[in-house]
Nucleic acid binder design. Structure first.
Lengths: 351, 351
DNA sequence: AGGGTTTGTTGATTCGAATCAACAAAGAGC
DNA sequence: GCTCTTTGTTGATTCGAATCAACAAACCCT
């Protein structure tokens, strides 16, 4: 005999001994397969003496039995899986938080989160959705790593879905995004409360929802503080440090320069620090700075540490999963929710 | 009739109309289920006229048919899935790169990467492995986000596995880690080539593999350059900017201070920048600085931009998947590979 | 024209676990 | 002693797709 295994010749690729099935367990325990199934699932609708249950458990243990999820899914019709499609994962620290928020919540509810990263490539995105549909995920989270409007792949309609950190024009799908307006307001209110009346704002590129929202919040805060809005104090950067540097200089060159600057993100703030310093001014004494994003690595280590706002990535990820669960339970006919979660102010020492 | 659906009353939770199966497609196309299977899998071992094939495709199209991955997996005995268990995901920018490296490669080979994040919690890790085993992943990547030694969960033996950015004491599993020694050498060689002879080294905590490796590389480079090793020039930091600040001051206070400093990571380098600047010295003219990690967000925006080394996260992720594939194909009896991948020098302007 | 192929196609079986329906054995009630 | 339950347990079926074995019809050759 050249083969030591049983007659059913496996294709060459499987040298590992076949995993035991419920039948194997049944044989060892001296019961029927159905009994094994009842025991291992702790099904109490059938009455079985503890002695039998113990015997089955022990047999399973002994064989190193592991249920086959595919078989169970097929039979039960549910996969306990939800998909997350993200446009980016490697280049931003936000991805991790969002994913973690989603995964923690999913996991706590016995669901597995299957993540596919697409780099924003449309073909890949379609392929990803297809794969998820074939795997019969119970829902899909479609995530962007920077708050933006997206156009929905048509296939996304084939399953419950939520948009995470993005939204569709037609509002046909539920979405969670940061409350940019409140964020802008929080930041500006804080600066005002610190006694500033002339507040510069280095915003992000004007076409971003983050930019328009925060500007609205900035203006609302000024209005609330009885401070007239001066367009000269608002400039748009490109979200990188160098533009923060240049634009800060520009603001400081104003006839009446600002005494505090609200930066559209922490990179810009980093550039602002340099500009302020190069000018021989001091933070926060001469110029106050507030950032946005709370990129720990920057904000916590700038000197002085940067006061900034934290985007609700974790909470958004969590909300997305929670929303999907809600969809499973009661197929609500209500229009899809468009939720905005608040950005928290992280107070440090720069204002 | 109170129910519009067919007789088989579904449990309440599934209001969505059942997805079509191969049988539905077969009925519509007027062929047998088996024929549908042959056509949709483009199985050429059976001869079927193009006309039939077209008819089946069209029927599938029309019904919006999607294969059921669970059913196919069950029958075929392969899931085309590999698992990745990571101890951290949210708090480091490395996670994304490693995951992306793994996923890109997996995806290019028609495999889905299923990621579970455990926060280093042992219970969660065990649960994650169990879940992966039940889903019959074809292999598992066990990843750490900071190069370290790990103790292997026993269950990991039940499936092919690779260690990513970590290793086990007994070397029983293949692993990929950064080549810290070469990294330390590369950095130091570079500094020497820039003409420096007195080179400080602010290392990480001494118990880390990254620290011991880089120190060895540092010493090897000195030896290669005919420069005597001076223990006073080597100090250990805690990997954060503040320790970089303090230790840089300490080094600059030496009777014969270094003219360049190799920092164990970019955070330390960031602190070093501040210390050098506060002392009224200039980078790179008075003191050269080299970092480690290439945290874009820091390195690219420090002024002057920081010359640093990049950890091979992406490549390691990719290697891990590739290695697993190798395991599938030929169950090699060779001892598990322990691979070290090189760290690339990113030259900017700080030396 | 008859045997041998090739071409198309199908019915039956299988993967592993979950369930349903059925049924023997043991108690319960009178 | 005889129904009626309850208690344990099992055989058969199902989920959806992949395959194997079988077979009718058409074609090919001498």
């Amino acid at each position: 005999m050249t083969r030591s295994q049983s007659k059913d010749a496996q294709p060459e690729s499987r040298p590992t001994t076949r995993r035991p099935t419920t039948y194997d367990v049944a044989r060892l325990a001296g019961v029927a397969q159905s009994t094994v199934s009842y025991v291992l699932n702790d099904n109490r609708t059938v009455t079985l003496p503890q002695e039998t249950r113990d015997r089955v458990w022990e047999a399973a243990q002994q064989l190193g039995y592991r249920p086959n999820a595919a078989a169970a899914s097929l039979r039960r019709g549910r996969t306990n899986t939800i998909g997350l499609i993200s446009d980016e994962i490697a280049t931003t620290p936000f991805a991790g938080k969002m994913i973690k928020g989603a995964q923690d919540y999913a996991w706590a509810n016995q669901k597995l989160l299957t993540i596919i990263n697409t780099d924003g490539d449309h073909t890949l995105t379609d392929a990803a959705i297809t794969m998820m549909l074939e795997r019969r995920v119970e829902g899909v989270i479609y995530a962007a790593m920077h708050h933006q409007q997206v156009t929905l792949p048509a296939t996304l309609r084939e399953t419950p879905a939520v948009l995470l950190d993005c939204y569709s024009q037609d509002g046909s799908l539920a979405s969670v995004t940061p409350d940019e307006i409140a964020g802008g307001r929080t930041a500006t209110d804080y600066i005002i409360n610190k006694g500033h009346r002339r507040i510069g704002f280095i915003n992000l590129q004007p076409d971003l929802p983050a930019a328009t929202g925060r500007l609205a919040g900035y203006q609302a805060a000024l209005a609330g503080g009885g401070i007239p809005f001066d367009p000269a104090l608002v400039v748009n950067g490109n979200s990188r440090a160098d533009s923060g540097y240049t634009l800060t200089q520009q603001l400081l060159n104003l006839p009446v320069p600002p005494t505090a600057i609200f930066c559209g993100n922490d990179n810009i703030a980093m550039g602002a620090y340099d500009a302020v310093r190069d000018r021989g001014l001091r933070i926060p004494d001469d110029v106050g700075i507030v950032g946005f994003d709370n990129q720990e690595i920057i904000a916590a280590y700038l000197r002085p540490a940067l006061t900034t706002l934290e985007l609700p990535h974790y909470a958004m990820g969590q909300w997305a999963v929670q929303y999907l669960f809600g969809q499973f339970d009661h197929a609500s006919d209500a229009p899809p929710a468009q939720v905005h979660l608040p950005c928290r102010l992280i107070e440090r020492a720069s204002v």
